[in-house]
Write a protein that binds this DNA or RNA. Structure first.
Length: 764
DNA sequence: GATAAGAGGGTTTTT
DNA sequence: CCCTCTTATC
């Protein structure tokens, strides 16, 4: 971009072409609170980046005097890249650009003692939290089956999202858990964290808030430090984050938030859309500007997304329109395609084919993304892509840092750095096996509880008594000695990667895996090597631990390669691609059953916003698909098309049934045309669709093993027509020979053989 | 205390 | 279906 080289103040103007003069001035006016309400693809991030560049470029503040907050690490990374490309060297030193959590962690490290912590505190992940909750539940004699640790953890999380410390939880809510013990557990939990010298994600913000509230002088320092505050995705802030921002913004009042109420998709994590609706009240004198001109997508994509989101009540409401200078020639723009298929395999096959043909026409894999509702849906695509050799990258997915071996290695490192970290101690004290079993651990824990000291500091004293004998004693002694030795090495300046290797070697962990002949063992060793490699990118152990505790991000490698991206809808927010595939639009999958069970209409509306986010990720072409049968958690189920499919506007959507699935309107005739043409056949009125609905859940429609690649059939055995042409991966093209009873026989052209390809079983 | 087999429970999204 | 936690047995 040419603007990168131009003087900052002049160059930045070119980034704001779509804004009217008044809006442009507001963005570049640097005084007072500003809210930018911006629909999808209207250049939200660009506005924010431009403002940041303007502030720095015109020397209103040094980079280190600006605070820029995002929600995801990916967004932070992107923001930094964009700012640097606009500013060049002037942008060096954007120290306070990051996620809410990473920035508040930085601040907390500096003033940890004000929150009763040491600056080496560890940050617990979800798994640690749940384990801690379990211990508390057991200690309090609560039935862990009736009141699960997970539930307690989410309850506490919810309170922290709303900035409720144990003293502030409303009494009626305190009774939600184990007949009123909820608040007690919360209190114990907090006390335990203090002893462990640890905090969880929520604490990072809560501690910040308390420290600021109790130390006005310190807060004043931060007011002076942060002269300009910029916030991305404001609609996703929770109460704690809002309070944190308000405290920091009290000084300069120069806070600029951008957001879109239609893209609020983190309600389950405590996000309050209210924050954005209330902005003008919270920040008196605030300017509000609206961006409604979309630069990203074709009119069909926009129309489809708008029509779906229009079904939501309780939104600010805005009308997006297509910029006349959009890259895509409007005349040639393709409609959004909606496709019904037999099962998930057919779906992944079709999508893989589409990607191949896109690439054969000169497109890149990079241009394509598959956006799913839940990560279990990713596997089908991975399998197909591997089979065809399509390069792909999973973003998010099963997380590297959540693997057992990685967590073990990290626990060793944590313990070396922070001896009070009991959770780390418990995790690795007998891993690999050292003869320290449950009994010994319970003994140690009861002593530790009495003394109020950590396991690690207390164990040497217990070892001097005869309380623990034999193998357990030997194991513990060796363990303690090792950790002390490693700690010395760290203190004496051993490089952290070398330390990690030493620990893995001397603890016997590598040995254990090498002796393990199971197929996973090699992967685990590889993962550990990868971990050490990743550590090398940081210059200290502290820096590394800080990073992984917060980031837990696997997307580091592989960026920039030409790969199809597979990710969840949540992870896709803020990103865009020319071609976007949106599979799995079935009731109970998307909108997700769980979300609707738990949050009813509110949940449904959030799911719909997710659909809106999904569609608007596409620049040129969006493909929506649903299937008749889906394997969910190992069980075959017949499923219905999502209600969101029905909400799509007929004028802008093309219904395609390339595979002869008669559950799809017109599917049994191989029809291709507009949804409007299908008229009354759509909206569940087609015979196949109707039957699907009636028979939902009644048939076990699993095809026999040798016909798993079946790609053309219908909603039930009686819907097959003789002579109907179908395709089967293994046997090629064929025509239906008989549909008798519950068996379907096909005549295959290539082999000339008749074959039973599907058996329908009606459960008793 | 270690190991193997069995029962039971939970299956969304993320910092 | 997969993973964890519990129980039984050595």
């Amino acid at each position: 971009m040419a603007a990168a080289k131009a003087p900052a103040s002049a160059g930045n103007e070119t980034y704001l072409e779509g804004l009217n003069p008044e809006q442009r001035e507001a963005v570049l006016t640097t005084e007072g609170p500003l809210l930018v309400l911006a629909g999808a693809g209207t250049g939200k991030t660009r506005v924010l980046t431009t403002r940041l560049a303007h502030i720095i470029g015109t020397r209103l503040a040094w980079p280190s005097q600006t605070l820029t907050v995002t929600f995801t690490n990916k967004a932070a990374r992107e923001m930094r890249e964009r700012a640097l490309s606009m500013l060049g060297e002037a942008g060096e030193g954007l120290r306070w650009l990051g996620t809410f959590h990473s920035i508040s962690a930085q601040i907390l490290r500096k003033h940890a003692e004000l929150a009763g912590l040491k600056s080496t505190f560890t940050i617990l992940d979800t798994d640690d939290q749940v384990r801690l909750c379990k211990q508390i539940i057991l200690a309090e004699n609560i039935d862990p089956k009736r009141w699960t640790p997970r539930f307690l953890a989410s309850l506490i999380d919810g309170w922290k999202n709303r900035a409720l410390t144990p003293g502030k939880v409303p009494p009626e809510e305190a009774h939600q858990f184990a007949d009123g013990k909820g608040i007690t557990c919360y209190q114990i939990y907090q006390n335990r964290l203090k002893v462990l010298n640890a905090c969880d994600f929520g604490d990072l913000l809560i501690h910040n808030i308390t420290i600021f509230q109790n130390n006005p002088d310190l807060l004043k320092e931060y007011h002076d430090k942060f002269r300009y505050i910029l916030v991305d995705e404001y609609q996703d802030t929770n109460v704690a984050q809002y309070l944190w921002l308000r405290l920091l913004a009290q000084g300069s009042q120069n806070i600029c938030c951008v957001g879109d109420d239609d893209q609020s998709i983190y309600g389950w994590r405590g996000a309050e859309v209210d924050n954005i609706l209330r902005f003008e009240k919270d920040f008196p004198g605030a300017k509000v500007i609206r961006l409604e001109k979309n630069y990203r997508s074709t009119k069909h994509i926009l129309a489809a997304a708008s029509a779906v989101i229009a079904n939501n009540k309780g939104r600010l409401g805005k009308t997006l329109y297509v910029g006349d200078d959009n890259a895509i020639d409007e005349i040639d723009a393709a409609k959004v395609k909606v496709r019904g298929l037999w099962d998930g395999e057919a779906e992944s096959r079709l999508i893989a084919d589409d990607i191949e043909s896109w690439v054969s026409k000169g497109g890149k894999h990079d241009d394509c993304a598959v956006l799913v509702r839940a990560s279990w849906q990713m596997r089908a695509f991975e399998e197909r892509f591997i089979m065809l050799g399509i390069p792909y990258r999973v973003i998010g997915g099963p997380r590297f840092f959540e693997r057992a071996e990685i967590r073990d290695a990290l626990a060793y490192l944590r313990l070396v750095r922070s001896p009070d970290d009991d959770l780390a101690f418990e995790r690795v004290v007998n891993q690999p096996k050292r003869g320290v079993g449950n009994t010994s651990l319970i003994k140690l824990q009861s002593y530790a509880r009495q003394d109020g000291r950590s396991l690690f500091t207390l164990t040497p004293m217990v070892l001097q008594t005869d309380e623990i004998k034999g193998g357990a004693k030997r194991g513990l002694t060796q363990f303690i000695d090792h950790v002390n030795l490693w700690r010395d090495k760290l203190a004496n300046g051993m490089p952290h990667t070398e330390l990690a290797e030493t620990i893995l070697e001397e603890s016997g962990y590598t040995d254990m895996l090498q002796k393990d002949r199971s197929p996973q063992a090699q992967t685990r060793l590889d993962n550990l090597k990868e971990l050490v490699r990743a550590m090398g990118e940081f210059d200290s152990l502290a820096g590394f631990l800080e990073h992984i505790e917060l980031v837990m991000d696997t997307s580091a490698g592989g960026a920039g390669e030409d790969q199809v991206q597979i990710l969840t809808l949540h992870a896709a927010k803020g990103l865009e691609w020319p071609v976007v595939f949106l599979p799995g639009w079935e009731e109970e999958v998307f909108p997700s059953k769980r979300s609707m069970d738990e949050s009813g209409l509110k949940g449904l509306e959030e799911e719909r916003r997710l659909a809106y986010v999904g569609i608007t990720r596409a620049r040129q072409q969006a493909y929506i698909s649903f299937v008749a049968n889906r394997q969910i958690y190992g069980r075959w189920q017949s499923v219905l098309p999502s209600r969101f499919v029905d909400e799509l506007p007929h004028d802008h959507v093309e219904a395609v049934s390339e595979t002869g699935y008669s559950g799809m309107p017109g599917g049994d005739t191989g029809f291709t045309g507009s949804v409007e043409d299908l008229g009354e056949r759509s909206n569940y009125k087609s015979p196949g669709w109707k039957r699907l609905k009636e028979n939902a859940g009644r048939f076990d429609t699993r095809p026999p093993k040798d016909a798993t690649n079946l790609s053309a059939t219908s909603g039930g055995p009686e819907t097959f027509r003789k002579g109907q042409r179908i395709f089967h991966d293994k046997f090629g093209y064929g025509r239906i020979a008989h549909s008798e009873g519950n068996k379907l026989t096909v005549d295959f052209e290539k082999s000339g053989r008749k074959k039973v390809i599907a058996t329908f079983v009606q459960p008793a």
